[in-house]
Structure formats: structure tokens, C-alpha cells
């Protein structure tokens, strides 16, 4: 006769040995949030004044709109690049992959210098585009250019991973069913990579709005939120910069949470019939 199972938790399935070291990282993030949040929440007057400050509101607007614009540009250019990388075994593929990763490994100041030299009024891109009326130095397009440059690997790598997970066989079958290469991409590949595209966009947006060094080297003005925090830190002290930082954290957390809730089912297919 089989003995009855002993009451209590089944041994050997606990993740405690993984949670303990992992929680060190989570703990550091929580502490970092607290050292910003506690002093701000103890002085709500400064928080209210900061939230109503037109300079702060403008900086938020510039930052978020520039971030969305940068993600839009990445979606239009990075998506085809990611697909091409996911579907080629050419020997030069690793060269392109390395180039895509360069903004990831460079110090932000070096990325800023590159963006500045490229897009300044005498730069190889800034010069011709300037003649078309697009100015980058100390202008909104400069902020977007810096944000796009530093976010390229975050978007392209995430989306390439997504395309790589779409079986080529599905595309092949779609072709035999009469779909051209383009229609196959739009009707089959793109929907199946939705989750990774959204994740790549979120990563790229987060990276873009957080950029400081690269942005200020091409466009100190109009102020983005990271520049404003630094400016207030050097001129108004910790309290003023803390309040702006708290607002940024709060907004980002809400945005990220809403994004995750809205996209929870994106790219997940099962029986909903």
C-alpha cells in the first residue's frame, strides 16, 4: 500500500535560493525610490509648486514628445532592419549587428559627441538637412536625433529577437497561399512579432527619455527633463531636483504599468473561441 503523502510543502520546488540574491537588486531599486520619494512626500508644498511650474511641464512635454517621435522613427527604420537581420545568414550580418550595438557600449558623452558632429550645422547630415530648414543645434530635432541614436540597439535587438521567433515555414506557407513577400510580412510576420515590437518600443522610449549627456551636447535647449533636473540640482539644490525626479518616476511607473496591462495579451494566441 502506498503511504499517504506527508502534509506540508513539497520540498525541492522552492525558489528561495534564487530569490535571496535576486532581492538584493530589487532592494536597491526600492531604496533608491524611497530616498527620492520620502523627502518629497514630507514637503508636499514643493511638490505641488513643481508640478505646476510651467518650465517643468514644458520639459516633460518636450521629453515625452521627443521620446515618442524617436520611437516612431525607430519603428519606421529599425523594424525593416531588424527583419532583414533576422532572416539573413550573410557573413556581413555580424558587422551590421556590431554597428547596431555601438551606441550600447559607448559612453553617453561619446554618443553625444558623435550626434553633435553628425548633426551640427556643418556636419555631414546637419549641413544638408539645415539647408532644407531642419536645425538640430539647440532645437527639438537635435533632441530627437540624440534619442534615436542612443535607442537604436534597444529597439532593433528586441524586435530582431521577435522576428527570429516567427517560423520561416509560416511565411513560406503564406506565400503558397498567394501572399506576396510584403503582404506576408504585414499579415503574418508583423502580427506574430507584436509583443517584441511593443517591448522594443517601450525599452527604446525609456532609454530615450532618460538620455542626458547625448542630448545636452547637441541641444541643451529646449530643456528635457533630465537636463532640467541637472540644472535645478546645480542651481536650486537637491529639494527642487528631487521633486522633478519624483514626478518623472511617478509618471513613468504609471505609463509603464498601463502599457504592460494594455499589452498583456498582445502576441499571445490561444483558444478564445
Amino acid at each position: 500500500m502506498t503511504p499517504a503523502a506527508a502534509p506540508g510543502r513539497f520540498k525541492g520546488r522552492s525558489l528561495i535560493a534564487f530569490w535571496i540574491p535576486g532581492m538584493v537588486l530589487v532592494g536597491i531599486i526600492v531604496l533608491a525610490l524611497l530616498v527620492i520619494a520620502i523627502p518629497v512626500l514630507q514637503n508636499l508644498e514643493i511638490l505641488a509648486a513643481t508640478a505646476a511650474d510651467p518650465v517643468v511641464l514644458h520639459a516633460f512635454l518636450v521629453t515625452f514628445v521627443a521620446g515618442f517621435t524617436a520611437v516612431g522613427i525607430l519603428a519606421l527604420t529599425g523594424t525593416p532592419l531588424a527583419y532583414a537581420l533576422s532572416r539573413t545568414d550573410a557573413p556581413w550580418k555580424s558587422v551590421v549587428e556590431t554597428l547596431v550595438d555601438i551606441p550600447l557600449v559607448l559612453p553617453h558623452t561619446v554618443a553625444g559627441l558623435m550626434v553633435y558632429l553628425l548633426f551640427m550645422s556643418q556636419g555631414p547630415l546637419g549641413g544638408p538637412l539645415g539647408e532644407l530648414g531642419l536645425t538640430f543645434e539647440d532645437a527639438f530635432p537635435g533632441i530627437v536625433a540624440a534619442m534615436v541614436f542612443v535607442s537604436i540597439p534597444y529597439y532593433v535587438n528586441a524586435v530582431r529577437e521577435g522576428f527570429g521567433r516567427v517560423p520561416v515555414q509560416l511565411e513560406n506557407v503564406a506565400r503558397t497561399l498567394g501572399a506576396s513577400k510584403g503582404r506576408t510580412f504585414i499579415s503574418v510576420t508583423l502580427p506574430l512579432a507584436t509583443r517584441h515590437i511593443l517591448y522594443g518600443a517601450l525599452l527604446a522610449w525609456g532609454r530615450a527619455i532618460g538620455e542626458f549627456a547625448a542630448v545636452i551636447m547637441i541641444a541643451y535647449f529646449p530643456l528635457v527633463i533630465s537636463s532640467l533636473i541637472y540644472y535645478r540640482f546645480t542651481t536650486g539644490g537637491i529639494a527642487e531636483s528631487q521633486a522633478i525626479a519624483f514626478l518623472l518616476i511617478l509618471l513613468c511607473m504609471v505609463l509603464f504599468f498601463v502599457f504592460r496591462v494594455l499589452t498583456r495579451r498582445a502576441g499571445v494566441y490561444d483558444d478564445r473561441g
Binding site: 513560406n172 506565400r175 503574418v188 506574430l192
Partner: peptide, 22 residues
């Protein structure tokens, strides 16, 4: 000719149904 012009039907071993479509 590209596959879409050949009038050939194809089914893989795993059937390769589009998972995002009913």
C-alpha cells in the same frame, strides 16, 4: 516564379497554421 504564382499548395509536418488567426 515566386511561390505565390506557382499554384502549389504546401503543408509542413507541423501544419504551420497561423497562430494569430482562427
Amino acid at each position: 516564379d515566386p511561390p505565390e504564382k506557382r499554384r502549389i499548395g504546401f503543408a509542413y509536418q507541423d501544419y504551420s497554421l497561423f497562430p494569430h488567426l482562427t
